[in-house]
Amino acid sequence: MRAGLSAVFFCAMAAMASAGQDRGPVTNLPLPRYVSMKAGEGNVRRGPSLSHRIDWVYKRRNLPLEITAEYGHWRRVRDRDGAGGWMHYSLLSGARTVVIEKDMVAMRRTPSPDAPVRAQAEIGVVARLGECLPDWCRISAGGQSGWVPKAALWGVAPDEIRE
């Protein structure tokens, strides 16, 4: 019996690999992908059900998270520190946000290192994500908006382009 189960598991894994399983089996959306916290508070569980233990609670609305897996109404997420677990999909939003990873990042008028600085963003600030070019993204936070180097952000893929 054990050998039979191993063979089935191996075949399933091989099929997923050959099919380029980089889409969620529930939503058919890309995996991994970024989302944000819709709720002001959300439990992070060990597994994809209410019967699994709560490991911690996120308490920051709009916090960007990366979805790495899907199972029914549950999404496995991870934060910028690599910590993660399973959250119910109703706690998450497709609205995109990012966290500033470098202190006092210049928010520039245009996507150029020579452009005038409109404002500065402190490390840890959560900002709304707008358009992204290969090396720059437009963000807004605290009533200010501007272009920042993509390398200074967590919550956007290095090769991601957004219009």
Rank of each mutant, 00 (worst) to 15 (best):
P158N: 03
A115K: 07
R108W: 12
I100F: 13
V148G: 00
V117C: 01
S140P: 08
Y89F: 14
A119Y: 15
D81R: 15
G143T: 05
M87Y: 05
G47H: 04
G146I: 09
R138F: 15
M104G: 00
G4N: 04
R80M: 13
S49A: 13
K150F: 07
G82S: 06
P111H: 01
V126P: 03
A15W: 10
I67R: 05
W147D: 01
E41P: 03
G72V: 08
G85D: 04
A15N: 01
G4H: 11
R45G: 01
K150H: 03
H88L: 08
R60V: 15
G4M: 13
E66V: 07
V98N: 00
R118E: 12
W136G: 03
D114N: 07
G146C: 08
R23P: 00
W86C: 02
P64L: 05
V125F: 08
D81Q: 14
A7N: 01
G72S: 06
T97L: 04
E41R: 15
A119Q: 09
V26Y: 04
H52R: 07
V8A: 04
T68L: 13
A95L: 13
A83D: 13
A19D: 03
R60G: 01
V117A: 03
S93H: 02
A95Q: 14
M16S: 00
P149V: 10
R118P: 00
L133I: 13
P158I: 04
Y89I: 14
R23H: 10
R61T: 10
I161H: 09
